[in-house]
Simulated scan of single mutants.
Amino acid sequence: MLKTEMPSSQHLQLDQYPVPELVAALVDDQFDAVQAVRNAAPRIARAVEAAVPRIEAGGRLIYVGAGTSGRLGVLDSVELYPTFSWPHERAVALLAGGESAMFVAVEGAEDDHEQGARDLDGVRPTANDVVLALAASGATPYVLGALAAARAAGALTIGIANNTGSPVAEGAEIGITLDTGSEIISGSTRLKAGTSQKIVLNTLSSAIMVRLHKVYGNLMVDLKPTNAKLFARAVRLTVHATGADEARARAVLEQCGFHVKVAIVALQRQVPVQQAGKLLEQAQGSVRGALGA
């Protein structure tokens, strides 16, 4: 039996716990997710190093999963645009059962190996693409079908699973095994198995974006303001990075369409925003490079 499916030997009377003890048990169990990701850190680092050159060459991040794993892939893909101005078309999420499965479980969809391959082939994978195959069990047929199609296309494949020796991890070019063990509620991999996958996806995509110069210091300087909160954040980030007062920062941001990178370079180098944009372009989008730092 898969570890993720085995009944836990702890908290055998979970249904009889008082609420404070029940909450504490559920929260404390999540620490195993963090430890599992820590143990996999070398593999995660290898995945980032392998992915960056392909993404720099124009490749896409393609997420594939079913159920909780698939929904976590969708979540990571859609958040890259507001956080890093990453183009929608370069973060593609494939979910067993299609878009409707994001909200309502589509029974049996995860068991269709051929559909996984068809869905992956449908997005026309290339050798520069990076395919993130997610499955808590590590044996989901839909994901394995997509994984095989991705490998046939020459894409970089990264398999993320929660059971050791799983076909998803073993069949990918780089396998990341998050050994979270049995769940406190037996078989419910939406718990710490899902948490561990969320941490890995956050880490992978964020590390890639850092390497693509979407971050200056520890500031997210390539965000895409789409609401009042993000416009205010853009001003704060510019003020923090340059020491300019809020009025000056806002004025320069307005001149460059609230592109924080451009505003920082313009203020620090004391040049017009058009010149700041050219300096960034020459530095491949690196604020440090544009500043000559």
Rank of each mutant, 00 (worst) to 15 (best):
M1N: 05
E5N: 01
M6A: 15
S8L: 10
Q10K: 11
H11R: 11
L12E: 05
D15I: 02
D15Y: 08
P18E: 10
V19D: 03
V19K: 03
L22W: 09
A24K: 06
A24H: 03
A24Q: 05
V27H: 15
V27M: 13
D29A: 15
Q30T: 11
V34Y: 15
V34P: 09
N39C: 10
A40F: 00
A41N: 09
A45S: 10
A47Q: 00
E49M: 09
A50P: 00
R54S: 10
R54W: 12
R60P: 11
I62M: 08
Y63D: 02
V64M: 15
G73F: 02
L75M: 15
D76F: 05
V78R: 14
Y81A: 15
P82S: 07
W86G: 06
W86I: 06
P87M: 13
A91P: 02
V92Q: 02
V92N: 01
A93V: 14
A96I: 07
E99T: 07
S100C: 08
S100D: 11
F103A: 15
V104I: 11
V106T: 13
E107Q: 13
E110T: 09
E110L: 06
H113L: 13
R118C: 05
D119V: 03
P125S: 13
P125A: 13
T126Y: 12
A127F: 08
D129C: 14
V130R: 06
A139L: 07
P141Y: 05
Y142V: 03
G145E: 08
A150F: 03
A153Y: 05
A161D: 05
G165R: 03
P167Q: 03
G171M: 02
A172R: 00
A172N: 00
E173A: 07
E173S: 06
E173D: 10
I174F: 02
T177I: 01
G181H: 09
G181C: 11
G181N: 12
S182M: 08
S182F: 08
S182I: 08
E183G: 12
G187D: 01
S188K: 14
T189S: 09
T189K: 10
A193G: 09
V200T: 14
N202E: 03
T203S: 13
S206T: 15
M209A: 15
R211I: 06
L212I: 07
K214G: 13
V215F: 01
D222P: 10
T226G: 15
T226W: 05
N227F: 02
K229W: 05
V235W: 02
R236D: 14
T238N: 10
H240K: 15
Q255G: 08
C256D: 07
V262A: 07
A263H: 13
I264M: 02
A266C: 11
Q268W: 02
R269G: 06
P272M: 01
P272E: 00
A276Q: 03
A276M: 09
L279M: 14
L280V: 04
L280M: 08
L280C: 06
L280P: 05
E281S: 12
E281G: 10
G285S: 03
R288Q: 12
G289V: 11
G292W: 02
